[in-house]
């Protein structure tokens, strides 16, 4: 396996979806190639950074206002959004 062959396999590699023989080849290449080892490390770190960011957290008051609007649009008297449960 060459460096260029590894890059398109990374998603399947991390999903565990590669055939066993290809996975072994990939692992062997990474173990012996400093450039690909660094590339893989940065790729994995990128995934972790996205997970750590966590996305938007709607403030409770915004979330409650939106739920109230949803229920209102549906013609439902909600179970008092805002009081929680």
């Amino acid at each position: 396996m060459r460096c260029d062959d590894l890059e398109p396999l990374l998603t399947d590699f991390l999903e565990g979806d590669l055939p066993a023989d290809v996975e072994t080849e990939a692992l062997e290449h990474v173990a012996g190639c400093r450039a690909c080892d660094l590339y893989l490390a940065e790729y994995v770190e990128t995934i972790e950074l996205v997970a750590e960011w966590g996305g938007e957290a709607l403030p409770t008051e915004v979330s409650q206002r939106m739920l109230a609007a949803v229920l209102n649009d549906l013609g439902i008297n909600g179970s008092a959004p805002g009081t929680g449960s």
Partner: peptide
């Protein structure tokens, strides 16, 4: 508008919203 028997559905919607709005 949902009828009274849809109360469970309304609860379901509220829970769905709380778990997934963000």
């Amino acid at each position: 508008p949902p009828v009274a028997s849809d109360r469970g559905d309304v609860r379901w919607l509220e829970e769905l919203f709380r778990a997934n709005s963000s």
